[in-house]
Amino acid sequence: MNTKISIESAGKTFGDGNIIALQDVNLAIGSNEFVTFVGASGCGKSTLLRCIGGLETLSSGSINVDGVPVSGPGVDRAMVFQHYSLYPWLSVIDNIKFTRLLQINREDITSADVETASGRADALIDLMGLNHVRDAYPNQLSGGMQQRVAIARALLPRPQILLMDEPFGALDAQTREVMHDMILHVSKLEKTTIVFVTHDVEEAIYLGQRVVVMAPRPGRIDSICQVVLPAQRNQDMKLSPEFVQQKKAILTRIRETAGMHTDLELLERMTRQAEADQ
């Protein structure tokens, strides 16, 4: 396995250093690998993703992409956000071609390059099933269609890495299933390395080759789970014993690290109180 992203003793603190978002995170992510991150809220999974994307800087340690330390955002690492990242004043096609407006893509550009770019935008429109809304504005689209546009826009400059921060978190269950198969298809077709953050364990197992379970306070990697499903996934696998068992194991880890016991105690105390009052 060629290492694409290597995270070495990464640490991140907020405030005056008293909130530890990430502590001593070590991980190597392979080329064309699909890695998913799950964990209770506050475990630092989104922070880690944003550090890989260069939107946040580490307080200690390093992240290397192809051996080069990450020092800021870069076109080799595209990012898809949960929502509100599309430009409402641009049509679907103009959103997808937005990167073509940027200087970084205009240097030494030839007419052949422009043609390939337009061809690529059309191909992505086809791939994402956006043909019928090509000239619509984002706010005329459903949440699922908007995320398709966001993914197409991220893929346009052929990034080697796609960073996805709960991209389907706001979608309904049926739309999510469709999006899952779509993004698996994209990862095969485009050979993109995908790092995917979610709070949905089922989503994490279904999509990932590996599931990284993170734990909060301080944010850290708790365990890494190699998914035992065949490479070609389908929705029926979600009912297989292997899938259910892995889901149970991961959920147990998340519950144990989330520190939910106080809430249970509180609930019991309130129930007893209510019974006493009757």
Binding site: G54, P73, F81, H83, L86, Y87, N105, P157
Partner: peptide, 13 residues
């Protein structure tokens, strides 16, 4: 802020 961050990740100055 997501609109701005999206542009940053696309390489906007």
């Amino acid at each position: 802020i997501t609109q701005i961050e999206a542009a940053q990740t696309m390489g906007a100055t």
